[in-house]
Every structure is written in structure tokens, then in C-alpha cells.
Write a protein that binds this DNA or RNA. Structure first.
Lengths: 153, 153
DNA sequence: CATATATCAGGTGCACTGAAATGA
DNA sequence: CTCATTTCAGTGAACCTGATATAT
């Protein structure tokens, strides 16, 4: 109770302002990023996982749900819901894999391919707005750093 | 329908791999950060917003709920819940502000101050693990970039 | 009157767990 | 039998909206 005011801020260890922690800044930056992406995708009735799954199927080709989920970090359970939506919209098909009948082979339809092209533009626009304050060199460094954080190394 | 295989990946505009977008990488990095922080805080029955509110009250001194929320980006509604928890644990007090009786003046208790010191260590450890792959210079650049993204400019 | 604060009730997306059915 | 894949049911934290009572 000695001093309620404590002019600067330190006591046992180094400086510890909340706004200087990576955990905090990453959380806030990601909320902003999610908002920018969501604002754009929502008008098409799509969410970020829908986009991510479409983009991954296009990039890596047809694959089982479990494999797509592993690649993206999407839970097997949520993958079911996302694919239900994408299938209902006619963006993907789920065909039983003859080589391993536990698996569904997820494939892009032509409509899915077209839609993905549109979503790509929306995500790019969100990225551009998000990164506006940064120079090209800074963007490069940021993405590299984030990539190493995500894929630890 | 011309070519299903498309060896590399481009067609209408530049490269557009999901893993190269800031929106995506920020989201994934933030999930990892949240997990690291949550793993450590959860054993004390605390979540990130509890920590953030305690840290802010210490850094900026007693303030009304709405002001703390504005500073942190925490919704007024969720602030009520967080403060209910913190008050129940004896970490903060809510006293009606005599100068404006709509406001609650939120203050840290000595127990709250002690607890915050402990949580600070946990968050620092999470930060350290998260940033392990990065050099000191890279960390500096990352935090600067994130800060500019969050506070647009 | 309009505005600001605190609270409550609720909705939605997302991360995650447990269990079941099916097949390798 | 063990393991993997898909599905379903449900939980918890976070983000967000709308409405209300109270005070400025």
C-alpha cells in the first residue's frame, strides 16, 4: 500500500508492458486481420475456413479430409462442418476413395474453382489493407518471421 | 476444365498461396501464441483477458471499466464478466466514482498486484518460447511491425 | 432532451474433446 | 486387435449486438 502511483514501471524483472509482449500484439493484430477478411468474405456467405480449405485443395490437389485438416491445422470435427457447407454450395465433391474406403477424396468443382478465384481477390485486398503501414521490405520480414513462429524453426 | 493438374500455381494474378498471406499467417501465429499463454495461465484459473486487465490497471492506474475496455479493445459486456471474476478472486475492487457516479473505479488490490507479478512471469515465458526461432533483431522488427498493424500507422 | 456507464441476455465463429461407426 | 478416418454431440473462450437502468 506504500505507493499507488509508481511513476514509470518496473520492480522485479525488466520492463513488462502488456503492449510489448508478442503474445498480446499477435492476438490484437490477428483480430484486426480476421475482421478485415471476414468483412469481405461474409457478403459471399463464406468464412475463413471455407476459403482455406478451397485454397488448399487447389494448391495440393484432391486429398482426404484428415490430410487437409492436418495441413491446415483444422480439427477433424470442424472439417466435417466446413465441407458440408462447401458441398452444399457445389464448390467441392466428397467421393469415397476406392483405394481406402475410409477416406473421402475431396475435389474442387469448376464452380469451386471460380469461387476461389473471387475469394482470392478478397483476401488479397484484406492483406493489402492490413499491411498498408508497412514497406515492401518490412512485409517480407514480417511474413518470414510469422512463418518461423508458426512452423517453429 | 483444360488442365486439372496445373504444375506450379498461377493464372490470373500473382502468386496466391494461402501460406503467403498475412491474414493467414497472423491467424495461425496467434493461435499458437494463445495456446502457449493459455497453457500457462489456465493452471491458475486465469485467462488472457484477466491478465490484460490487471496489467492495464497497474500500468495506467485506477480507471472506469469503459476506459479500460477502450484501451484494451475489450467489449464492455465481456469486461463485466472479467471484473466479476477478478473481484471474486480479490484481485481488484470496484468502487463507485464520487465524481461521476455512473463509473466504477477499478483498482488493484495488494493480492492483485502479487498475482500480476506471477502472471507476468508466465506470459514472459510464453513469449520466450514463441519467439525462440527469432534473433533479438528479428524480434524487435516483428514487434514494431505488429504494433503498426494494430495501431494503423 | 441526448449522451455515457454498467449490466444482462443472447448469437456466432472458432478451438477443442469424447465417443461412435466403419474400414485398413 | 490396433489404428486411421469420418461423423456427431457438446464445451469453453472470444467477439459482437441489442436492450435496459442509471447518471451526466
Amino acid at each position: 500500500m506504500t505507493n499507488v502511483h509508481e511513476p514509470p514501471d518496473r520492480e522485479g524483472a525488466g520492463p513488462h508492458r502488456l503492449a510489448d509482449t508478442a503474445v498480446w500484439l499477435l492476438g490484437r493484430a490477428s483480430v484486426r486481420a480476421s475482421r478485415l477478411a471476414h468483412e469481405r468474405l461474409a457478403s459471399d456467405g463464406v468464412r475463413k475456413w471455407h476459403y482455406a480449405v478451397l485454397a488448399t485443395v487447389k494448391e495440393f490437389g484432391p486429398a482426404a479430409q484428415a490430410e487437409i485438416g492436418r495441413r491446415l491445422g483444422l480439427d477433424r470435427s470442424d472439417m466435417v462442418t466446413v465441407l458440408n457447407d462447401l458441398e452444399r454450395e457445389g464448390y467441392v465433391t466428397r467421393d469415397p476413395d476406392p483405394a481406402d474406403r475410409r477416406r473421402n477424396s475431396v475435389q474442387l468443382t469448376p464452380a469451386g474453382h471460380t469461387a476461389l478465384g473471387h475469394f482470392d481477390q478478397l483476401i488479397r485486398a484484406a492483406d493489402e489493407e492490413l499491411l498498408t503501414p508497412l514497406s515492401a521490405a518490412e512485409r517480407e520480414l514480417l511474413l518470414k518471421a510469422l512463418d518461423r513462429i508458426v512452423h517453429g524453426a
